[in-house]
């Protein structure tokens, strides 16, 4: 018998807490306890860095079902499994009056071949500057910040990264067009992000080739009905290190059975990651909303 290390212990406790949060959300009826002032599915799902968004790209919507008079709290866990790596993320999001979003996320990146894990924490802040994805004729506009701190920077420094923490700033615009695609609801989001993070920050910040760059991130989806959305995302990536970093893509399907949970599955194409080429695989994400 082998006892878990401090780090593993922390991971287990965290996972247990999120499991409890999410199963709690599913059990409690959202109508009785939580925010429900937005239309089903319109808050979107859970982005890998903790913001409300698609899987890869932050959206202009703020997390959860809070309207201008409500408060919302969400929890989620996601897993991305590609050929040589795995990324697990769990996080929590709060929405204050559909004006301010605060998020926390912990990422665990595992490299099976090296039996190594890299952990990163992200604190996010987003504020809605203008509009509503459905009701205003101009799109909704939000400004966000993600501050990232790498707990295990050894590999990042080895690959030439300059820092173990960094801050991304992004502007996101989103719009849902009712009935616009042959009668189906059509959604799009564009985000512009200023960042010095390498592979989200898991490989550190800055590097020999570049430091801060501006990257464009796109999402689009079609709603088959109020419960099901199909879409794609494209995330332009920096390329600061000597090991090459590619743009990311996914195709996703999201299911919103009610306002308490959502489930997302995606096919990922992450290109070259830390010296391994053509990283493709799957992504699953489960979240609960109050």
């Amino acid at each position: 018998m082998r006892f878990p290390t401090m780090r593993e212990g922390r991971g287990i406790v965290l996972r247990f807490m999120f499991f409890m949060l999410i199963s709690g959300a599913t059990l409690l009826n959202s109508a009785a306890y939580g925010a429900s002032g937005k239309i089903l599915a319109t808050p979107g799902v859970f982005q890998v860095e903790g913001a409300a968004g698609g899987g890869l790209v932050p959206w202009a919507q703020l997390a959860g079902y809070a309207s201008d008079e409500e408060f919302a709290l969400n929890g989620f866990c996601s897993r991305a499994q590609v050929d040589d790596y795995r990324l697990d993320v769990c996080g929590a999001q709060a929405n204050f009056y559909d004006r301010v979003e605060i998020s926390l996320a912990r990422q665990n990146f595992s490299v099976a071949a090296l039996d190594a894990e890299i952990e990163q924490d992200i604190v996010g802040f987003k504020t809605r500057l203008y509009g509503d994805i459905i009701y205003t004729s101009w799109p909704q506009l939000s400004l966000g910040v993600q501050h990232k701190k790498l707990a295990d920077p050894a590999i990042a420094y080895l690959l030439g990264a300059e820092q173990d923490s960094g801050t991304d700033i992004y502007l996101a615009v989103s719009k849902l067009h009712l009935g616009a695609a042959a009668g189906y609801n059509f959604f799009w989001n564009v985000a512009a992000r200023s960042t010095d993070a390498n592979q989200l920050g898991i490989l550190g910040f800055g590097g020999p080739r570049d430091n801060r760059t501006l990257n464009i991130e796109l999402s689009s989806a079609i709603f088959l009905n109020p419960h099901w959305a199909l879409g794609f995302e494209y995330r332009q990536k920096p390329d600061n290190l000597v090991v090459r970093e590619d743009d990311w893509r996914d195709l996703f399907v999201a299911w919103f059975p009610n306002k308490s949970v959502s489930l997302t599955a995606a096919w990922l194409d992450l290109g070259d990651v830390a010296g391994q080429s053509d990283q493709r695989g799957w992504y699953f994400s489960l979240g609960g909303y109050w």
Binding site: I134, Y135, H177, L178, G179, A180, A182, G183, Y184, N185, L224, N225
Partner: peptide, 18 residues
């Protein structure tokens, strides 16, 4: 009501929100 007709009706009612 078929989903496309639902969405088209909502699209015409949404501008009345203001």
């Amino acid at each position: 009501t078929p989903v496309p007709a639902q969405n088209r009706l909502l699209a015409r009612l949404a501008p009345m929100r203001g």
